[in-house]
């Protein structure tokens, strides 16, 4: 029956080529840890994606409770942490996942770097990967403020001072980021919007590019 449903859809939308592009390819021996244990270094990229998915899912659940304003931000996080069933675990996953994704991404970058996989024809994919790295750092930076506790508040003040010290553009950059002259209500809503809408949108776009390029160019050959 599933076959019939599939064929019915396929006749109308021609999905088989897409499906084949996504899924139907082979994994060469030199990247398969089942054959060469040292090939586990090729898992870091996949694990980064795995944690990114965890981050997106746990983040979606967090926004069910989180309120981005200066009074309720802390209150809602505290409520989520102490009252909501499994709230502590979901927030824990998002908090620790944020660190782990950086670790995994770093390891993945180092694997690509030291195996020279960024060389022709894969230069563009390296650049896209680095942009993903920067977006991830941006997500970490904006997410750090959201619980609106003292640690978050003062760290963001330092960030603003650093932004301010950029020549010429600094003051403009600072005011743009904090949405005013102080770190306050506007900063919080702005960081929230960046963290939940803008940066994830950029991230997903870049990820699609990253994956399409991997499929087009294949995994780099054995050393």
């Amino acid at each position: 029956m599933f076959k019939n449903i599939y064929n019915w859809i396929d006749e109308r939308l021609d999905v088989t080529p897409i499906w084949r592009d996504v899924a139907d390819h082979e994994v060469p021996e030199h990247v398969n840890p089942a054959h060469h244990f040292s090939a586990f270094v090729y898992c870091f990229g996949g694990l980064t994606f795995f944690i990114t998915v965890i981050q997106i899912l746990s983040g979606m659940f967090l926004t069910m409770y989180y309120v981005p304003d200066i009074i309720n931000a802390y209150n809602s996080v505290e409520y989520l942490q102490t009252q909501v069933a499994f709230g502590q675990i979901v927030r824990g996953m998002h908090h620790w996942g944020a660190s782990l994704v950086i670790v995994m991404m770093f390891l993945h970058t180092m694997r690509v770097f030291f195996t020279g996989s960024y060389k022709a024809p894969r230069e563009m994919n390296w650049v896209v990967g680095m942009l993903i790295f920067f977006v991830m750092l941006g997500l970490g930076l904006t997410g750090y403020l959201l619980p609106w506790d003292n640690k978050a508040y003062f760290a963001t003040k330092v960030t603003m001072e650093i932004a301010n010290s950029v020549p010429y553009l600094g003051p403009v950059l600072k005011e743009l980021m904090q949405g005013g002259t102080i770190v306050g209500a506007q900063t919080l809503t702005r960081f929230f919007a960046l963290h939940v809408f803008f940066l994830p949108a950029v991230l997903l776009t870049l990820l699609v590019g990253h994956f399409i390029m991997i499929r087009r160019q294949g995994i780099s050959g054995p050393l």
Partner: peptide
Amino acid sequence: LTIAEPAPLGFPANPSATIIPMPD
């Protein structure tokens, strides 16, 4: 890890608090 080590949460942001700022 998430069960053993709950995500940290401090006190509500207070601009007059004395705290050593620390990024992630």
